[in-house]
Simulated scan of single mutants.
Amino acid sequence: LPSKPLPPRLVIPENDIIENFLKGSGPGGQKINKTSSAVQLKHIPTGIVIKCQDTRSRSQNRKVARRLLSEKIEELELGEGARTAVKAREKSKKKASGDKKRRRKYRALAGEKGEGK
């Protein structure tokens, strides 16, 4: 768990969003070519456009697209204080700590091999 609580998620008013359903592209065969399950959201005040076709379900794609749009807007408004930036910093700290531990471990193993000769 992060040391500090994350900032609350941004709630976007519905009248600030234009929502379109599109036919998807890429793998998926006839199903993806015939159904309009991809979602495109445009945030009117900022002009940010998000397209999502992660799943074959329109409702799941709507949820994912709205979350992505709120993250993008939050990054634009808050910069380093945004949820995604905070999560990225926490992740990079954990990775750096793990890398440091790994280097120490292999350095100690190399030292043991040198003494055994």
Rank of each mutant, 00 (worst) to 15 (best):
R107K: 10
P2K: 13
T55C: 00
R67L: 12
A110S: 15
A65I: 01
G28N: 02
S57C: 12
E80T: 08
S70L: 03
Q53I: 04
K42W: 15
K91F: 10
K63V: 13
R62N: 11
A108I: 10
K91R: 11
K100S: 09
R58S: 10
G111Q: 15
E115Q: 12
I18C: 08
V39S: 06
N20C: 11
P13T: 01
S59M: 10
K113I: 14
E74N: 01
K87S: 10
I12D: 04
R56I: 02
R56T: 01
A38F: 05
S92A: 11
K101E: 13
K91E: 10
K100N: 09
L6C: 02
P7S: 04
K87F: 06
Y106M: 14
L10D: 00
D54C: 11
K31P: 05
E115C: 11
G111H: 13
G29Q: 02
E112H: 10
A108D: 13
E90S: 12
K23C: 09
I18P: 07
R9E: 04
R89H: 04
G114K: 14
I48T: 07
I50D: 04
L22P: 01
S37I: 07
I73R: 02
N33I: 03
R107G: 09
K100I: 03
H43G: 00
